[in-house]
Amino acid sequence: MSHWLTIARKEVRGLLGNRSAKAGVALVALVFVFGGYIVPTSVSNPTMVDYDGFLRGIVLFLVPLFGLLLGYRAVVAERAAGRLVLLLSFPHSRADVVLGKVAGRGFVLLGTLTVGVLAGAALVEYPFGTVALDAVAIYLGATALLGAAFLAIGIGLSTLTTSLRRATVLTFAVFFLFVVAWPQLDGYLYMGLEYLNLADETLPDWARFVHGAEPSLLYQRVLDSYVSTNKIRSGAYLGTAGPWFLQGGPAVVLLGAWVVVPTLAGYLRFRGTDL
């Protein structure tokens, strides 16, 4: 068995043996199921568009938080408790450790969202709704990518410091910046650009691209492109008439980059440090 797979398996076993992790997993899955339960009570022929519409605001907070919480202790807590010493006294490389942790925790994340979304979608479908399978797949895929991006950011952060307290502070700072503050900044960005004579009536497309490159905005763009197409809900997407780089496809790629880049940066950082 590959080294990273050995570590990933142990990660999963460890998370499932931990009571607070189990409670978190159950809570997140239940929110998705709950959405599927509520939507049909207010809409007569519900679809995934209604499900997405109902859950969007909650998911934008819940999934990034879940990803960060799954990730931010991954390395730093093990290091503080000396488990990293035990782990690395075996023939595992630092890459195996980071990859194993991302894979193991990613598996738990994906499993949670899959169970939640599939059960939620089933409740939307039955008895009066219509759920397109491709819409469910895209919704699940995008939501999992959003979670994975924040998981990777969390794991990346956990390699930056040896103090668990500092890692906690950093994690909540990132959560606040990315999830709470950043999406509200487009107004200021517009004002700034207007002052510099770089914007006319609205944000120029390139500025919209830069501002929208944050994971939760990318997630919105993906859903607006592929799931809730007739009901654009966020300012991150201009519809099919917009430039190519503001379409759903590039957003998927960028969201994927948010998984890869923090993981890689975390690894490079971890590779170079003393335990």
Binding site: T6, K10, R13, N18, E78, G82, R83, S89
Partner: peptide, 24 residues
């Protein structure tokens, strides 16, 4: 090693099993 910590939630047998998996 010195200053190691054990995995809470894993038994002694599972620790050794992990060592075996790690070394193939």
């Amino acid at each position: 090693p010195e200053g190691y910590g054990v995995y809470a939630g894993l038994t002694g047998r599972q620790h050794v099993q992990f060592a075996m998996d790690s070394k193939g």
